[in-house]
Write a protein that binds this DNA or RNA. Sequence first.
DNA 1: ACGAGTGTAAAACGATCACTTTACATTCGC
DNA 2: GCGAATGTAAAGTGATCGTTTTACACTCGT
Lengths: 180, 180
Amino acid sequence: MHDSHETRARLLDSAEKLFDRYGFTATGMDRLTTAAGLSSRTLYKHVGSKNRLMAAVLDARDRRFMRSLRVASVDGLFDALARWFESEEARGCLFLRSWGETGGEVPEVAEAMTRHKQRLAERIDEIVEAEIGRRDEALAEEVLILFEGATHAAAYRGETAIPAARRAARRLIEGRRASG
Amino acid sequence: MHDSHETRARLLDSAEKLFDRYGFTATGMDRLTTAAGLSSRTLYKHVGSKNRLMAAVLDARDRRFMRSLRVASVDGLFDALARWFESEEARGCLFLRSWGETGGEVPEVAEAMTRHKQRLAERIDEIVEAEIGRRDEALAEEVLILFEGATHAAAYRGETAIPAARRAARRLIEGRRASG
DNA sequence: ACGAGTGTAAAACGATCACTTTACATTCGC
DNA sequence: GCGAATGTAAAGTGATCGTTTTACACTCGT
């Protein structure tokens, strides 16, 4: 048989590009099968439904994104985001977009979004702790908001949004480190 | 004749709720006509097409949103956002969502998004100037990113995101006010 | 009372939607 | 070399998409 794992990877990869570029609902199954080089029969054997395909795409994207965020400082965090947008176009967070497009009513998608945002928040908690030597949930939430804001502002302002967010985050961190 | 202006307002109002709740593509014309209490013939006489309806909805929302942002301080800015989310559910920015759903390929929608974000940036420029007594584009961009971040983080973290963003913005402002 | 304007309800348009099925080719272990 | 598995291509499923059309009713100024 053909390598099932490789086929699935190719499917998730091409589907992610299409969903990101054209949106979830506007991307039809024929475009997905063509891009993956699969018959619709095989595609359905692999993922079961369009909703489950979207959820699988989001889970794979979460792993890839989180892998790129293995950094130990807020500068590293925003540098990682800048690097992400060197290979991906900035169109806002795909998790939030998919969740919004489906009205929050597709459980697989809603759960993938929640899981991803939970992991992101935890990662930022750790980075903030590494920076100032103790946990600071309030500061971590502020950095998370800058991260979320940079992700979305980059979609319409270009990548100057990312150094601006990085600058602001650094200032907030320095303020807590000194007077903490 | 029936009041054409009132009919149009009712149409835009119900359409905005549906687009926001279920997404643009997933909301069909039958749902829109039913919610507006109009025949499809009349709806098409008023707005011409679904794309133009979305653009009209966005323009009306821009006016309403900008009217709610007539404030003179960053505290006022984030308080206004909190007030906005008392009557609207937080699902991220409808302009960015619509733009993303249509792949940036519907000119009316893309232009409405660009116009809105331009106005928002100008308003925040003015607010920052009122706070510190001079223009500061870098600081204004940081506040904009916090605003964008709060808008989207509120969708999955609840409204604690807004006071957190307000707190961070205040800290950034105070830093520039003191040290010039 | 009449034509123009404005409204409705409902059928019809071809296209496309997610998904299934049919029919057939290939590769595999044994 | 045979049966099971896995693949393809392509037609077909009924539903729904955005949009237009047909047919008909009401209200206006004149």
